[in-house]
Design a protein around this nucleic acid. Structure first.
Length: 669
RNA sequence: GCCGGGGUAGCUCAGUCGGUAGAGCAGCUCACUCGUAAUGAGCAGGUCAGGGGUUCGAAUCCCCUCUCCGGCUCCA
């Protein structure tokens, strides 16, 4: 008599089955639609295939495509299909790893004779993949001993390396994830069609039952990638693709990609005449044009106001310094490679040694020196120094990217020096301040990330790190935001909290960072005199709210798709007279607006017909276009075209418009 | 830095087999005087990223440098 097992379903109900029943059969017993949709299952939280027999009581979740888990399975299975297609089309290709990632998947290959993929290859591979999907190959799982697996993958060195690593116990989570198995064995998946094995891959699974379940996918791009992310290791060819539960979901995703491209700040920077990167200046060095500089100035001015109101003191420091400063801080130990090379001066001096200067890659040592300039009393703590400090970092050539990763940037940098007792309160109120200011720039969907001690690249003791990390965690909790752990992501001198913000199309950007630092105060031997008349070491908090002005600017451009809200828009109002007899009235409107402190300009009839002037102003994403004609001149009104509306408002009184614009600017709408 | 792909007018791009460069938009001039997303005509605009090589001849083929793009690695 066969044994019964109890299967608990996500809705809390339980059902009895004969031992050996598969998740596929469970799904079928619940409903045909579920059975048809199912791609995999989770048993007690563990991924399994639908065909894996259940032999004990279990909490079972049937995974369907239209879920995060389901898409992960689809993507991973699609990656296998891609690998099969590549090995068919490129005999001798070595396969590395091919996981599911956010929104898609990739697979790394090593092609014979150093061959590389072209865009045409991508199309061919996609065609081959469609054939494999059409053939509806079954994914069959089996477990092999290490020796059998090594033999099976005799001509796949990357797979063998993973197996060896797992066997020797040196595997990290990534390797273990690839190899599956249960410690004495590894699992492999065979793609079987008509009894023939078309492809086999080392894999933990799970996979869809057969390739026919796949189909809504697209290969996106080819890229180089290091084997195991090791800069010194071999460079593989990576193909990125995306896969979804339906054609509609795929189309939607591709549309999102287009939308992101449309918002690209590098493209809008040219279109809206905001900034550029003249080749003559050098890589990663931007110039801001009048309109971009205007937006930037407004951003900075508002930031200054807010900092002033929150008891920050403004300081300034030079762009270059003698090397000793960065030796003391430790930056030269960690970051000499990514600093602009030193300037050696006065080498003809008596001892011939001369002096070495560096461009500053950061501002903190300067602020420390300001603190240290005289004896500080506990009465003046916390001391908050703020500076728009321009720094230079020699970013590696391949990482420079628009305004988000540049070689010359301006940090809205502040350093707070306080007592240990003040630390908790200071961190908490700082976080409130940061979030509040970010909201004023139109960002309001946040989560926090806590980055801990970086292994092998950190100064200070574990005790100091633990203390600092816990202080940050305490500050982060209770803000009502999700807190995500970023293990090993801290700076060399301390852990950090970063504020991650979602933009208008749901992309996450790292915005502000708050770092707690017990190291610099020691290195620079900072002190204050306490109430007990003894000398104490202050705690130092590093923080940047924008991060860098350039980067924040880029995020705002992409967030707003170049359509800045009125308070930030370089031109708030464009006045268009219908014909040149309305010019004097148009100028009066512009004068009035400018007198009220708005940024208004007039485009008269000599630069085109009304339709073309309207078109241009709309292309420039001006918040308000005012059209003025005969009736407006007679009645003191304007025709208002608010950005985003295709419905012009006629006969709006000038006073009413001014009031409306003023309110909008004031409220940062 | 590494892998791959690019650089032709301000912008977007075409340019065949190696035979000294073309369009649209933008700009300028003139005409049009117009109520909501492109009026028309004309003009002007290029050391084909820079340097070297091959060739009778190079935007085109080769090499180097700069620079951009997609990734990887990195990001104080």
């Amino acid at each position: 008599m066969s044994q019964q097992i109890t299967v608990e379903l996500p809705d809390g109900t339980s059902r009895e089955y004969v031992s050996g029943t598969t998740p596929a059969e469970v799904a079928a017993s619940i409903g045909t639609r579920l059975a048809q949709a199912a791609v995999a299952a989770k048993a007690d939280g563990e991924w399994i295939d639908l065909a894996r027999p259940l032999d004990h009581d279990v909490a079972l979740q049937i995974v369907v495509p239209a879920s995060d888990e389901g898409r992960e399975v689809l993507r991973h299975s699609t990656a296998h299909v891609m690998a099969e297609a590549v090995t068919r089309l490129f005999p001798g290709a070595k396969v590395a790893i091919g996981p599911a990632i956010a929104d898609g998947f990739y697979y790394d290959f090593d092609l014979p004779d150093g061959r590389t993929f072209s865009d045409d290859d991508l199309a061919r591979i996609e065609d081959e993949m469609r054939a494999i999907v059409k053939a509806d190959q079954r994914f069959e799982r089996s477990e092999l001993t290490y020796d059998d697996a090594l033999a099976l993958f005799a001509d796949q060195p990357y797979k063998r390396e993973i197996i060896e690593k797992v066997r020797s116990g040196a595997a990290d989570a990534e390797d273990a994830g690839e190899a599956g198995g249960d410690g004495a064995a590894v699992s492999v998946y065979r793609n079987v069609v008509d009894g023939d094995v078309a492809f086999v891959d080392l894999c933990r699974g799970p996979h869809v039952p057969s390739t026919g379940k796949l189909g809504a996918f697209k290969l996106l791009k080819v890229a180089g990638a290091y084997w195991r992310g090791n800069e010194k290791g071999p460079m593989l060819q990576r193909i990125y693709g995306t896969a979804w539960e339906s054609k509609a979901a795929l189309a939607e995703h591709l549309h999102r990609l287009e939308e992101a491209e449309r918002r690209d700040h590098r493209r809008l920077g040219v279109e809206l005449d905001l900034f550029s990167f003249p080749e003559e200046i050098g890589s990663g060095l931007a110039v801001f044009h009048p309109k971009g500089a205007l937006v930037r100035r407004i951003m900075e001015e508002y930031s200054r106001q807010r900092h002033e109101a929150s008891d920050y003191q403004f300081v300034n420091s030079p762009h270059i310094t003698k090397e000793g400063l960065f030796q003391t801080s430790g930056h030269l130990d960690w970051f000499a490679d990514s600093m602009f090379p030193p300037m050696h001066l006065d080498e003809g001096g008596q001892d011939g040694a001369g002096t070495t200067y560096y461009l500053k890659p950061m501002n903190c040592p300067f602020h420390i020196l300001i603190f240290k300039h005289r004896t500080r009393s506990y009465r003046e703590l916390p001391q908050r120094f703020f500076e728009f400090g321009t720094v230079y970092r020699y970013e590696k050539s391949g990482v420079v990217h628009g305004l988000t990763r540049v070689r010359g940037l301006t940090q809205d940098d502040a350093h707070i020096f306080c007592t240990k007792e003040q630390m908790a309160g200071e961190l908490s109120s700082l976080l409130d301040f940061v979030l509040d200011v970010l909201r004023d720039y139109g960002l309001d969907d946040f989560y926090l990330e806590l980055s801990t001690k970086p292994p092998g690249k950190a100064a200070g003791t574990d005790e100091e790190w633990d203390e600092a990390t816990e202080a940050l965690r305490d500050a982060a909790q209770g803000k009502g935001l999700a807190l995500v752990l970023d293990v090993g992501g801290g700076a060399f001198y301390g852990p950090k909290i970063s504020v991650q913000a979602k933009d208008a199309i749901g992309r996450t950007w790292q915005m502000s960072t708050i770092q707690l630092d017990f190291q610099m105060p020691q290195r620079f031997d900072m002190q204050y005199v306490g109430a007990d008349n003894e000398r104490h070491r202050p705690v130092m908090i590093h923080r940047a709210l924008f991060g860098s002005v350039e980067r924040f600017f880029a995020v705002l451009v992409e967030h707003y798709a170049g359509a800045f809200p009125a308070w930030l828009a370089p031109v708030q109002v464009t006045v268009l007279p219908v014909s040149d007899r309305h010019d004097p009235y148009g100028f009066r409107i512009v004068d009035r607006l400018v007198a009220e402190g708005f940024r208004a300009e007039m485009v008269d009839g000599s630069s085109g017909q009304l339709g073309s002037r309207i078109r241009r102003a709309k292309t420039e994403k001006v918040p308000y276009i005012l059209v003025v004609g005969d009736s407006d001149v007679d009645n003191g009104t304007v025709g208002v075209n608010a950005r985003g509306s295709n419905d012009p408002e006629r006969d709006v009184h000038v006073d009413a418009f001014v009031e409306r614009l003023a309110a909008e600017v004031l409220e940062h709408r």
